[in-house]
């Protein structure tokens, strides 16, 4: 098994697990000690895995969008707040188990609560949560709200770059004909590959023929369900030329895991050339196949 390779960080986790198993033998006798250690390991290992995760490649894939930065920073904001709360509460728990065991003489502290404390630990998280909630709004609006959709560029709600059609179990991108019409017979259909120009606001319409699918571009932090009966406009801007996975993110049947596509980001001239080649292919008379056969 490859993760037993010592150069891999996961090996350390396994080693720790093995060590913990050895604890078992002594656990019954030293229950309190080991409980303290086990619960303490939760925040320690928990934080450690998050620190090491980027190194193991277990972090967000590379961001090549204009949406991504906002989302990633919001994730990190929540990550910090969550991490602090996590560590503090777990430390509190560990301290209690460590300090207040049944060998301590006397009875426990007889109290039914403290109004002041309740107020404090209601008010502070309330404020923190409200901060988190309101911090989200700007980015969400930018991605989803109609008044933030691109208008000035080549692609807009009424002039989308393509219709992205999902069906069991494939993606079909339909580009307009040379006059920009989607109702023409000369529309261009590109199975699997969603080709877009770089550094351009891309607006597209998402549709489904049969069941729910979800259009997911990990590298662009973009996800939207394709709903049969609905045409959903979406927009993004890719900032780097390359090929990125397009993944179906909503269960759509047995072939869900196979429903792959690809976002191909090209430079603008390359994109125009690709489109022109696709249009020319409609004029093919098949003689190219004859030549290939020779």
């Amino acid at each position: 098994m490859s993760f037993l390779n010592p150069s891999n960080g996961a090996w350390s986790i396994l080693a720790l697990l093995v060590a913990l198993l050895l604890v078992l033998v002594t656990f019954v006798k030293f229950t309190r000690l080991w409980t303290v250690i086990l619960i303490a390991l939760l925040p320690i290992l928990g934080v450690w895995t998050f620190v090491k995760a980027p190194e193991w490649g277990l972090w967000f894939p590379k961001d090549v969008s204009t949406h991504g930065a906002g989302m990633d920073s919001l994730f990190n904001l929540i990550l910090w707040m969550v991490a602090i709360t996590f560590v503090l509460t777990e430390v509190g728990l560990v301290w209690c188990v460590f300090r207040y065991h049944d060998k301590v003489p006397g009875k426990s502290l007889f109290t039914h609560g403290s109004h002041k404390l309740e107020m404090i630990w209601t008010a502070i998280p309330a404020v923190a949560l409200l901060v988190i909630a309101f911090a989200q709004i700007g980015t969400f609006k930018q991605i989803k709200f109609e008044d933030h959709w691109p208008t000035g560029g080549p692609y807009s709600k009424d002039k989308p770059i393509a219709h992205v059609i999902a069906y069991q179990f494939a993606w079909l991108m339909r580009y307009p004909d040379a006059n920009g019409s989607f109702d023409s017979v000369d529309v261009i259909e590109s199975p699997f590959d969603f080709v877009v120009p770089v550094d351009t606001d891309i607006m597209f319409q998402l549709k489904s023929r049969d069941v729910l699918h979800s259009f997911f571009l990990p590298n662009l932090r973009l996800k939207q369900d394709a709903v049969p009966g609905m045409t959903i406009p979406m927009w993004f801007q890719a900032t780097e030329v390359g090929e990125y996975d397009l993944i179906c993110a909503e269960l759509c049947g047995w072939g869900h895991y196979k429903m792959a596509g690809r976002l191909i980001v090209k430079s603008k001239p390359d994109y125009e050339k690709w489109l022109a080649d696709k249009r020319a292919a409609l004029k093919s008379n098949g003689t190219a196949d004859l030549e290939a056969a020779e």
């Binding site: 509460t89 301590v104 502290l109 404390l117 630990w121 949560l129």
Partner: peptide
């Protein structure tokens, strides 16, 4: 905001353990 009552409960559980005599 629904995280808030859950947080209050967690704090109260820790408060319950504070100064207690835990039988493990």
């Amino acid at each position: 905001m629904i995280a808030l009552p859950s947080a209050v409960k967690v704090f109260n559980w820790i408060g319950t353990l504070w100064g207690s005599r835990i039988h493990l």
